[in-house]
Nucleic acid binder design. Structure first.
Length: 496
RNA sequence: GGUCACGUGGCCGAGAGGCUAGGCAGAGGUCUGCAAAACCUUUUACAGCGGUUCGAAUCCGCUCGUGACCUCCA
């Protein structure tokens, strides 16, 4: 296996060899949730995608510092002066303190992420806890001449910036077109150009969330938090910046501009963007109202759902597609993912129980080659811009061999011992440590299961088929099946 | 309107100038008290029309269709 990891960089629009700035340390920043509501399926995609990125980088031996923020201030409903803060609006609606809203949905986010087996980032900073850093950054940007104050608010001067730097390099935007736009926005009379964006906004009287600053009682602009917090925890330049494709413009574009205007150079070396989850071909989004929350997905409590889907089914569903492609939600697709996931888990259970026997028989060269190739395919796929879909395909090819061993159609001894151990280790490592999938056991009472299996075994010997059928029915009712095989009796998860 | 993607078999979804993706579903077989699982075999493909090439699903052009961003969104 080689460690040449290639990452598609949105900035250069090509796959490039990943070389950390400061080997073996890797700094990664991913835009986290705005905590004003329950997380939906679409919100889970970046979390899962970058969880795999995080896990794989660690697997490759990098020392990763992973920062994923919580946006709890400054994210407005729209770009006008009356644009309400998302958290503030929710607080008014629910008659709660803004920080109660933040706490509530941050906790809810953590809960569903834990169910999805998404690891906690190394640091999870809140925007509201870094007002000072953001104010300092604004001051520096003003000093460098790229921002101006207007009526208590501070705006980033896009036109001035684009005279010295390429604004729009990430999203392919052309500055001239941006500030020659005819769109008439409410906040525009304070701005020199419509393309300018807020670094600091003066709070209107009814705006609850406000902090003192040199310019006004107000709050920071949405884009600024990521620039300030990434710089604080990862340094002025770090390795990977991730987030959803829909954040490319204006959020990430503005981040780049702010960081360059402040520090003189770009914040991140590699920009990664996950694509959207669609439903009936359309983007799943809060604003479109066509979303399914993760909680609903896990309980089946949504009219769009035929049934509930387990967290691991959802995770597997997402990993079966490449992160840069759209992924279409449907009950058929989820159900298919559920079956495939369970099949894989049955394989995981089997291989954990397999050990290499002592006796020697001739090796099967073709079989060994096939296994070696599949293992290589797994890692080559991951190295090719985290292609988890192709990786899983290769895992299923290994799974066929594992199942064939289990059902005595292949003898382990015909596999080279080193190849077998490599298969076992890789299969388990990839599934559990890299893809982050685990067995969702529907019962922990294995003793009970084994006792029943003993009864089943006895009943079979006595040919008491009424008992046999009865025990099988008990298993079936619990979502398990008994498997009679040449070489013994075993149980498995029912895939239907 | 501008910018940019995408269109793969019944469904989902990889790949990418010649070499099996994979999963789910369907068919046949092996195994089996019945069944399930497993394994083997197998049927439906690369939107349409041109072009480049010895060869294109993969490159180029056009047409049709879908979507994303340009305003909040992961």
């Amino acid at each position: 296996m080689n460690n040449a990891l290639f990452i598609y960089n949105t900035l250069t629009k090509e796959k490039t060899l990943f070389e950390p700035i400061n080997h073996p340390y890797v700094g990664m920043y991913v835009c986290g949730p705005t905590v004003y509501g329950d997380a939906h399926l679409g919100n889970a995609r970046p979390a899962v995608v970058f969880d795999v990125v995080y896990r794989y980088l660690k697997y490759l031996g990098y020392k990763v510092r992973y920062v994923r923020n919580i946006t709890d201030v400054g994210h407005l409903e729209n770009d006008s002066d009356d644009g309400e803060d998302k958290v503030g609006k929710k607080a008014k609606l629910e008659k709660l303190e803004p920080m109660e809203v933040v706490q509530l949905y941050t906790d809810a986010y953590h809960q569903v992420m834990q169910k999805l087996n998404v690891l906690m980032p190394s640091i999870e900073p809140h925007a509201s806890a870094h007002i000072t850093e953001q104010i300092q950054m604004i001051e520096e940007i003003i000093r460098n001449g790229y921002a101006y104050e207007s009526n208590g608010s501070v705006y980033f001067d896009v036109k001035k910036y684009s005279e010295h730097h390429p604004y729009g390099e990430l999203s392919g935007r052309i500055p001239e077109e941006l500030y020659s736009g005819t769109r008439e926005l409410d906040g525009q009379h304070e701005k020199k150009n419509s393309a300018d964006f807020a670094l600091w906004k003066k709070a209107s009287p009814e705006h609850i969330m406000r902090w003192p600053s040199p310019w006004s009682m107000g709050f920071p602009g949405w884009h600024l938090e990521c620039s300030a917090m990434s710089a604080k925890y990862l340094g002025n330049t770090f390795d990977i910046h991730g987030g959803g494709m829909d954040l490319m413009f204006p959020h990430h574009e503005s981040e780049i501009a702010q960081s360059k205007a402040c520090h003189g150079h770009a914040p991140a070396k590699y920009w990664m963007h996950n694509n959207m989850i669609t439903i009936n071909g359309q983007k799943m989004a809060k604003s479109l109202g066509n979303f399914i929350t993760l909680h609903q997905l896990f309980t089946g409590n949504n009219s769009l759902l035929d049934r509930a889907y387990s967290p691991m089914t959802v995770r597997f569903f997402m990993l079966q597609a490449h992160y840069r492609g759209t992924l279409d939600f449907s009950n058929d697709a989820l159900l298919s993912a559920q079956k495939a996931y369970k099949r894989l888990m049955n394989g995981l259970k089997i291989i954990k129980s397999l050990t290499y026997p002592e006796n020697h028989i001739p090796k099967d060269d073709k079989l060994n080659d096939e296994i070696r190739n599949s293992i290589n395919d797994c890692f080559n796929s991951l190295n090719d811009d985290f292609n988890t879909a192709a990786c899983i395909a290769a895992l299923f090819n290994l799974l066929k061999k594992i199942n064939a061993i289990h059902s005595s159609q292949i003898r382990i001894e015909s596999i080279d011992p080193a190849v077998f151990e490599q298969m076992k280790k890789s299969f388990i490592d990839i599934i559990e440590n890299i893809l982050g999938l685990y067995e969702e056991k529907n019962t922990r009472t294995e003793v009970f299961i084994n006792a029943l299996l003993d009864l089943y075994r006895e009943a079979k010997i006595l040919k008491q088929y009424d008992k046999v059928d009865k025990i099988r029915a008990i298993f079936k009712a619990e979502g398990l099946v008994i498997k009679d095989m040449k070489n013994g009796i075993d149980w498995a998860y029912d895939e239907n």
